[in-house]
């Protein structure tokens, strides 16, 4: 084998590998993007209530280790000192605790109201209504030390415009279940 042959051969090998490398990029670039984006996508899914699980009226659903049931949704009409055309809405839930590790399972608990257009209302601090002593909010229930088998009464208060009061549905999201959340249907649905 002459030196010239060797040079020619290595040139051939180089060309072959260059072509292989270029083809490999087709695979490697999307793969890199996927690996780089993995953490961001995981965080996006874990932080947002994206996919609704519909719950029929009167039905109890296992969510975040406990059984959730919507017991009441009503407006508190006739209150003074509120913005015009607004109405406070109270959402009551009855939750039978299954797994008592609420501090882990109920972390980031978020109760909200969602209207037909998808707008979301968070609980308000503008309205304070007297509640029975055994009624808690979702966040305060986390630290209530509830045991397995206990039933918690949760209530959240919202302020919504009067014209959407008919179309709103309550929803519950927990960090341990995100991106899924519960969307409760009402009796008339």
């Amino acid at each position: 084998m002459t030196a010239r042959d060797l040079v020619q051969q290595s040139g051939l090998g180089e060309r072959k590998w260059r072509r292989r490398s270029l083809w490999a990029l087709l695979l490697l670039i999307p793969l890199t993007l996927a690996v780089e984006a993995y953490d961001s996508i995981k965080a996006l899914l874990a932080d947002n209530d994206l996919f609704a699980r519909r719950v029929a009226w009167g039905q109890s659903v296992h969510f975040g280790g406990s059984d959730w049931k919507l017991t009441n949704l009503r407006g508190a009409f006739g209150m003074a000192n509120l913005p015009p055309d607004s109405v406070p809405v109270l959402a009551d839930f009855s939750v039978k605790v299954g797994d008592p590790d609420l501090q882990k399972l109920w972390l980031g608990c978020k109760v909200m109201l969602i209207d037909a257009a998808g707008r979301r209302w968070s609980p308000t601090s503008a309205v304070t209504l007297k509640a029975p002593a055994d009624v808690q909010t979702c966040t305060s229930a986390i630290f209530s030390g509830a045991k397995s088998g206990d039933t918690l009464n949760l209530r959240e208060t919202f302020l919504v415009p009067k014209d959407v009061a008919k179309s709103i549905r309550p929803a519950v999201g927990l960090a341990s279940e995100r991106p899924h959340f519960l969307l409760f249907q009402l009796e008339r649905d």
Binding site: S86, W121, S122, T124, S125, F158, L159, P161, D163
Partner: peptide, 9 residues
């Protein structure tokens, strides 16, 4: 200021 949809403040 906390604001809710449909309730300007």
């Amino acid at each position: 200021v906390t604001i809710d949809p449909g309730l300007p403040k």
